[in-house]
Design a protein around this nucleic acid. Structure first.
Length: 805
RNA sequence: GCCGGGAUGAUGGAAUGGUAGACAUACAGGACUUAAAAUCCUGAGAGGAAUUAAACCCUCGUGAGAGUUCGAGUCUCUCUCCCGGCACCA
């Protein structure tokens, strides 16, 4: 009897798969396809993390399962290779990022190959390959032609550590940079933007039908922050000016008694024109704005303000309203100017502080509670349940019930216009860094921007640069780049020296996998039509906004340009949870608690590591690593190995085994479809435990089991199948007739408490079943303790007698 | 503050409104062994009563409290705590 030697058989099968090209995908459009994709990794120097292994194993199981079911499966892998760690390493050591990146990729690939993952490596690429970023640049140029890329001077997020600007999406809630952890500063710079706001509505509406985690959809909706409200336009007294104010909670508009404007509002100087105190007020406004930008984003700030000296004439008939500068008004949201009232917490606090008069037009339903509101003791801002007092048309009605009627009412009377605003800003993509795709723009001697024409793409990243960041792009130090530009375009032409945000590169890679070697197009329409959209997309939840939003934006733009015919790139999305260390903390070099997948594969084998990571718990849950527990799945595999050595030639399969086998087929199939892989492994264990109790294990009971096991532990399954003379590349067919056993054990309850079990035929008629239950000694005993009332019989499940006492 | 998600043995976790704790780990006892490891078998939510002992038996038990139901870990309401996201967004 031979022993289970994971090293030998895993090496053997990995070689076999590689040599046979077993997972190479054919564009066989006669077959139904499945496109199963992992979020491609950044190839960091630290190598593969057990968290990567979890996600990759899950999609691998899904892919192998779909192949066994007869689908044509596309399951590729590539590298999100541009990015700061390689560049920072270059600054420290002088090693070119190109070299570091390629070394890391080789290491990742080696680690992945040891796990027996069924990727089609013939489609591999990295976003740093010129053959790839040529098309990233080509797409940029197309966007530029369509006016979807533009350059503007803007107040942007500046990371003082990484010395580059960042997108809003890359700044955390506490005002620190997502990557470097540095406190982000505001700087006014001229930068390139993608016009993602053009698609704001569709990015919200398109979420609805997607099979995505609800929390991810909500995060995206919140980020886009669509809100419907009213714009009120009103003249400024003693001037020729008018101001627009935006209000999303306008139901109590009759209560407005003042107006606030953001301290950094560009309109402010104009508004103050002609006032004697203009300069003094502007200086104070600047003071307020500066103080605000210094405050931590997380901390609550004391409101501050100053009266401008101006009044608006309220279009609604609230008279003349004083205009104040207030620290809590944001220039970049809505119109940056707000009509204020007693029915907003911030307005209320502000008015109290500066003793601005207030007016109440909204009260709680409960008269007892109205007193405090009417006497301005507390702010009442419930725009849903509050009762309106004004205007007369809506007096006495619940504000929430008449919201749309108010919109109609004020629109008809031309008091205000309905308007939708968004929190989403355009996507800032310029980076003053080296290791990214160069922005394919050149400037003529007049300074006008032109896209680099297609024949000069890829617009290569120069190598003669100083990596050290000094607040301007390292590309500015490249002699080659400037010479190249003048040589091609003429004297006086200058290159753009910023590179693109790496998120631009990862916003379309899933399209490239459909046709990765195409030199004429970013991917052929035919290949994209067959393979896309992605059927299953798996990756970490940290990308709920950034990557997933950008990829959706690219997809919609390319659809509008006619390259693709679908609107959403990822039909089904799942997140894998974070794998914590054994001490339930995050894995970190600092804590010395990092689990290296290589060590685990070496000790226990790839099949055990794969099974264990699936068995840990639900895919999406955050869960701690426990090396002890791998022994459990390792033992399971050894049992399977031992069983195979004792298989006897086919006799029949007795009915209990057959029923359990078919129940297992059903359970494992459904669980894989739902990605409930922890319970699928458990079902396999239950079946294997059963086989171990048998004196004789017939091939008929063992072969389908190996087929079920194969996606999870492919090496051992292939090896045993080969030894026994069959293959595991098909999926067993579920037969409900064979899964059903004729007898069933059901619980008998008295008043909902289980008191006994009885074994009866599944289809036993109610009266007979009840009779049999009553004759059970324990139940009979209980039934003497009270008068039997109602009896509930759920066939195959339960009997419940209710006693009347 | 707002929006999500969660709380089940010593641990990871399982459970279409129907016998809570599947499966696994750790633990304890036993077998094998000179011994240990490995392996195999058995036990086990907490408590109680009873017994030579075990089983059977009884009470309680899924963060806390109420409710709906013949029956609630699961549904509804209130609360506590934990995790994630957003946060002067008018």
């Amino acid at each position: 009897m031979n022993k289970y030697d994971h090293k030998k058989i895993e090496k053997k099968w990995q070689q076999k798969w590689a040599e046979a090209g077993s997972f190479k995908t054919a564009d066989d459009s006669t077959k139904e396809k499945q496109y199963i994709l992992d979020m491609f990794p950044y190839p960091s120097g630290a190598g593969l993390h057990v968290g990567h292994v979890e996600g990759y194993t899950a999609t691998d199981i899904y892919s192998r399962y779909k192949r066994a079911k007869g689908y044509n499966v596309l399951h590729p892998m590539g590298w999100d290779a541009f990015g700061l760690p390689a560049e920072n390493y270059a600054i420290k050591t002088g090693t070119p990022p190109q070299r570091t990146t390629d070394e890391s990729i080789a290491n990742f690939k080696k680690q992945i190959s040891h796990l027996g993952l069924s990727y089609d490596w013939s489609r591999e690429f990295g976003t740093h390959n010129p053959e790839y970023y040529k098309w990233t640049q080509w797409l940029f140029a197309k966007f530029f032609e369509k006016g979807l890329v533009y350059k503007k001077k803007a107040l942007v997020n500046w990371d003082p550590v990484d010395q580059t600007v960042l997108a809003n999406e890359q700044v955390l809630a506490d005002g620190t940079a997502e990557r470097s952890g540095a406190k982000v500063e505001k700087k006014e710079l001229e930068q390139w933007f993608f016009k993602i706001t053009d698609y704001a509505d569709e990015l919200v509406d398109g979420l609805e039908p997607l099979d995505w985690p609800e929390s991810t959809k909500i995060n995206q909706r919140n980020w886009i922050g669509r809100s419907e409200g009213l714009i009120f336009t009103s003249p400024v007294k003693n001037t020729a000016l008018t101001i627009d104010t935006f209000s999303a909670h306008f139901e109590a508009y009759c209560a407005d008694t003042f107006v606030v404007i953001a301290p950094d509002h560009p309109f402010l100087p104009t508004l103050l024109d002609g006032l004697p105190d203009k300069e003094k007020i502007l200086a104070q406004a600047k003071n307020i704005a500066d103080k605000r930008s210094l405050t931590e984003r997380g901390e609550v700030q004391e409101v501050e303000g100053i009266f401008t000296g101006r009044y608006t004439v309220d279009p609604v008939g609230n008279g003349e309203l004083p205009i104040w500068i207030a620290s809590y008004a944001l220039a970049e949201y809505g119109t940056g100017i707000v009509k204020c009232s007693a029915h907003d917490e911030r307005d209320f606090a502000f008015a109290k502080k500066y003793t601005i008069p207030l007016k109440v037009v909204l009260v709680p339903e409960d008269p007892a509670e109205q007193v405090a509101v009417k006497s301005f003791e507390r702010c009442y801002a419930d725009m849903k349940n509050g009762i309106l007092l004004e205007p007369p048309t809506f007096a006495g009605k619940k504000a929430g019930d008449v919201r749309s009627e108010i919109i109609a009412y004020v629109s008809e009377r031309e008091i205000a216009k309905a308007k939708t605003t968004y929190r989403l800003r355009d996507w800032l993509i310029s980076r003053q860094r080296y290791w990214g795709a160069p922005i394919p723009i050149v400037y003529d001697p007049e300074g006008k921007a032109h896209a680099v024409p297609e024949e000069h793409l890829p617009w290569l990243l120069p190598t003669d640069v100083e990596y050290l960041p000094k607040g301007t792009s390292p590309l500015g130090t490249s002699k080659e780049l400037f010479e190249r530009t003048e040589k091609i375009f003429g004297k006086g032409w200058k290159p753009e020296v910023d590179t693109m945000d790496t998120f631009a590169c990862s916003s379309w890679y899933f399209l490239r996998f459909a046709d990765p070697h195409n030199t004429k197009e970013f991917a052929s329409k035919k290949a994209m039509h067959y393979w896309l959209p992605v059927d299953l997309y798996l990756g970490g939840a940290e990308h709920t906004v950034l990557h997933l939003l950008y990829a959706r934006f690219f997809t919609k733009v390319l659809r509008d340009m006619g390259y693709i015919s679908f609107s959403e790139p990822f039909l089904k999305l799942r997140h894998q949870g974070i794998v914590l260390a054994e001490d339930s903390r995050k894995m970190s070099k600092r804590w010395g608690n990092v689990i290296n997948p290589d060590d685990m594969v070496e000790r226990f084998g790839a099949d055990s590591v794969r099974l264990y990571e699936m068995f840990m718990g639900p895919l999406e849950a955050m869960k701690p690593w426990n090396t002890n527990n791998i022994m459990g799945v390792r033992r399971f595999l050894e049992h399977i190995w031992a069983l195979a050595q004792t298989i006897k030639e086919d006799g029949g399969v007795e009915s209990a085994t057959e029923a359990l086998l078919y129940q297992t087929i059903e359970k494992v199939t459904k669980d894989i479809e739902a990605l409930k892989l922890n319970t699928a492994v458990s079902a396999l264990m239950i079946y294997s435990n059963h086989l171990r109790t048998l004196k004789v294990v017939p091939t008929l009971a063992y072969k389908p089991f190996l087929q079920l096991l194969a996606p999870f532990a492919p090496h051992i399954a292939c090896e045993l199948a080969e030894q026994l003379g069959f293959t595991v590349d098909t999926w067993p067919v579920f037969d409900p007739l064979k899964a059903a056993s004729s007898m069933v054990t059901i619980a008998v309850q008295i008043n909902g408490k289980a008191r006994a079990t009885i074994k009866i035929p599944v289809d036993m008629p109610e009266q007979e079943a009840l009779q049999q239950a009553r004759s059970n000694p324990a139940i009979a005993d209980w039934l003497t303790k009270g008068k039997e009332g109602k009896a509930v019989y759920v066939p195959g499940r339960i009997i419940n007698f209710v006693l009347n006492t």
